[in-house]
Nucleic acid binder design. Sequence first.
DNA 1: AACCAGGACGTGA
DNA 2: TCACGTCATGGT
Length: 231
Amino acid sequence: MKMRAILTIYEELLKLHNRQGWWPLTGINGKNPTKTGSLRGYHPGDYHHPKTKKEKFEICLGAILTQNTSWPNVEKAILGLEREKILAPEKILKSLDLKLIECIKPSGYFNQKTKKIRIFSEFYIGLKNKTPARDELLAIWGIGPETADSMLLYAWHVPTFVVDAYTRRIFTHLKLIKEKSSYEQIKEIFEKNLPRNHELYNEYHALIVEHAKHFYSKKPFGIQCPLKKLI
DNA sequence: AACCAGGACGTGA
DNA sequence: TCACGTCATGGT
């Protein structure tokens, strides 16, 4: 029952919202300019991003900057870094706090995020084109489970399922997970009931976010959710 | 004018 | 472990 529901819901989400084209990147000339809150950079159906090292790093920074923050604000911060020509780990390490803060400010928590981005840049340089282990990322100050999984999935194509607040909100509402399930428990439910495929995980998480913006952003959450008829 | 946003960390029990 | 406060800007 639950087994099948996870996949059934994915198929329904795809019908409702179509492919999302994550992870959004600032440098791509927009295939999906209609999407609210995004300037450009979605690439629906193309799961081969990132194509360059710069894009990979941009995804990682975006994963940090979007912590408890809406994407339009994050885009402003990333474009700020790009405008200042410091959207690269070496450049970030060489930049003054004042300059970093100025760029990061629109995405909120600028004191914490400036520090997080510095620490991550150092780590990223040390990586030398390798794929980091999940535990390695989790050991870094400022990177929790969702940020680690987002980086692994969207920058490195590691099939690890990303769980966020929306995931918890939707699936508790549908009574498919328990209210107090841990991050790892929820992640496990999805991974055990889906083929281990990074393209599927990519699309599923993005669809969850899109769906939640439609039906789970205003209280009471999920009242009009069309997924309820499937359960 | 509250409330929420693609969380993570520090603290005290 | 775990519940709770804190961090901060911007959109609705």
